[in-house]
Every structure is written in structure tokens, then in C-alpha cells.
């Protein structure tokens, strides 16, 4: 592959991810609306929100780190998207792999945490403390699953993992070969998305949306962009590990949206857990399932 082709991929992959992410946000809000018997937002609502926020006339910055935090939150995901293979494009997936990707997507969260810290608002700090606790909760099953998948495919390389699954159709998909791990991964991804009942760190009525408390204008807009990326990334990692990756775009899109739709159809009927209850639930069921799945894979 020549350099120009690669650079084009690096530029195009985040754009695609963002666009898909926008529609995922729309789908999420539509699902919530349908569950609550509402009409829900129009087609381009997520885009209107982001444009409006970026175009705010006055914006409040609490200092350089506040700015840098948002830049890291968006930029980190832009980088992460180039490590996730999509149909026809591999980016730098071969040079990073599943394990590195799992750690690269912590960079945006770290950036956000820094930015929020600089805001000097205790609600934000509490939000970040809870978000990190939630991360400690869902990453434990998540890494068990990464281990299981990586052991099963004998590779850490996402391109290999996709090729391995596409070799024999649905029968060789990860979900067919490692159903227990696939279920655990869905659970863990649900917690990762931070929607009810796992939205401990947003908690609007309790800590005033936690990390977002001092975010307005392009700061909040950056977080909206980050949310688009986050939805796409979580879904794409799942599809790549368990649902055969992307053979072609239509199938890939169906899989991506379906994977987000599953937790979202459950989320909006729940209230919110307390922080320690998130730990209890996530450290119990997905971890047990994950360990059982790894045992099955290894024996």
C-alpha cells in the first residue's frame, strides 16, 4: 500500500466514524422517544446541536488545560478510529492491534478528566471520580474478553481477527464460536456506554451532569463529537471481535447499529445505580461470564 492511499484512509476513517456516530446518537434519542411514546428529534438534530454549540458567540474557558482537555478528548478518538478496520480500509490497524486500541481509547477520557479538573467545580470532579470508578468496573470484564478473543484468534491484530471470522461465514463468527464471551462483552459494552442504569457520572439531578457541568459552547460541542466517536468505537470493536467485522458497508452498518440498539432499548426504562452497585453488578455477572468464556475458549 502506498503512502497516499494510507494518508487518505487516515483522513477518511474518522470522518466516516463521526458520520455514523451522529446517526447513532439520533437512533439513541429516537429509541428513547419511542419508548416514552414521543416523536423524537428530527433527522439532523445531532448535527444542529453540534453546529449551534460550536457557533456560540461567547464561550467560557477556565484556562488552557480546559481547552487542551477537549482537544485531547476529540483528537484521541480521531486517532483511535484509524486503528479500527472498516470495510475496504485498514488504516494503521496492523501496527497497533486490539490491546493498543484498548489503551488509546483511554486517552480521550484522560483528556476530558484533565479539562474537567481545571474547571474548579466539585460537581465535575465528583463526576470524573465516578467515571473513573465506572471505568474500573467495566474494563475488568472487557480485558478478560480481549484476552479470550485474542487467545482464540491467536492474534492481537484486528485485520487477522476479521479475516479469521470471515473465512467461513456466520459459522466462524466470534459470537458463534465464543457465545459466552460475546454475551459478557455485550454487557461490558453496555456499561461502557454510560447510559442508564450505568450513568452514575452524568447523574443530572444529583451532580449536575458531572463532567459536563462547566462545559458550554464548543466545549460541550466537543463532548458531543466525542460521544459520536465513542458510540461508533464501542460498536465497531464489538463487531470486529464477535460479528465478523465488515465484509461490506451495508452489512457492517446493520451490525453496528444493531449492536448499539440492543443496550439502548433496555437503557431508557431503568433508573440509575449507585456507584458501588455498578461495581457489584459489573464485577459479578460479566466477569463471571467472561472468565467462564475464557475457560471454554482455552479448553
Amino acid at each position: 500500500m502506498n503512502m497516499i492511499e494510507l494518508l487518505t484512509e487516515l483522513a477518511v476513517m474518522p470522518l466516516i466514524a463521526f458520520t455514523i456516530g451522529l446517526f447513532m446518537v439520533l437512533m439513541m434519542r429516537k429509541i428513547a422517544a419511542k419508548i416514552q411514546r414521543r416523536v423524537g428529534p428530527p433527522l439532523l438534530q445531532p448535527l444542529y446541536d453540534i453546529v449551534k454549540l460550536y457557533a456560540k458567540k461567547t464561550q467560557n474557558s477556565h484556562g488552557l488545560v480546559h481547552d487542551i482537555g477537549i482537544i485531547m478528548a476529540v483528537g484521541g478518538y480521531i486517532a483511535a478510529e484509524t486503528m479500527l478496520p472498516v470495510p475496504g480500509m485498514n488504516g494503521i490497524a496492523a501496527k497497533s492491534g486490539l490491546l493498543a486500541l484498548a489503551y488509546v481509547i483511554m486517552i480521550p477520557s484522560l483528556g476530558l478528566a484533565l479539562g474537567v479538573g481545571q474547571c474548579a467545580n466539585p460537581n465535575g470532579s465528583i463526576g470524573i471520580a465516578r467515571a473513573l470508578t465506572a471505568m474500573l468496573a467495566y474494563d475488568v470484564p472487557f480485558v478478560i474478553i480481549i484476552f479470550g478473543a485474542s487467545w482464540f484468534y491467536g492474534s492481537n491484530n484486528l485485520i487477522d481477527i476479521v479475516a479469521h471470522q470471515q473465512a467461513g461465514g456466520i459459522a466462524t463468527w466470534g459470537a458463534a464460536k465464543m457465545p459466552v464471551l460475546a454475551i459478557a462483552a455485550l454487557f461490558s459494552m453496555y456499561a461502557m456506554l454510560g447510559k442508564q442504569p450505568f450513568e452514575i457520572y452524568v447523574a443530572p439531578a444529583e451532580i449536575a451532569t458531572g463532567p459536563m457541568v462547566e462545559m458550554g459552547g464548543k466545549y460541550l460541542g466537543g463532548l458531543f463529537v466525542m460521544q459520536c466517536f465513542q458510540l461508533f468505537t464501542a460498536s465497531a470493536i464489538y463487531v470486529t471481535m464477535f460479528l465478523g467485522g465488515g465484509e461490506n458497508w451495508p452489512f457492517f452498518l446493520v451490525k453496528l447499529f444493531a449492536i448499539i440498539a440492543i443496550p439502548m432499548s433496555m437503557a431508557f426504562v431503568f433508573p440509575r445505580y449507585r456507584t458501588e452497585d455498578v461495581l457489584a453488578v459489573v464485577w459479578r455477572w460479566p466477569v463471571l461470564l467472561g472468565l467462564a468464556g475464557v475457560w471454554l475458549v482455552m479448553h
Partner: peptide, 25 residues
Amino acid sequence: PRGSLDMLWIVGVLFAGFGIGALLF
């Protein structure tokens, strides 16, 4: 072939991402 790590690329792309993020911001 079973999983390489190339920090030059990862960091390069990461900082390019930060650059685009800064441009947007």
C-alpha cells in the same frame, strides 16, 4: 504478524488527531 506494535505510527496518528482536534476547537 500476530500483533505488532509500532509506537512511531501510533504516536504520530495520536498527535495528528490532537492537531485536528485543535483545528476544530
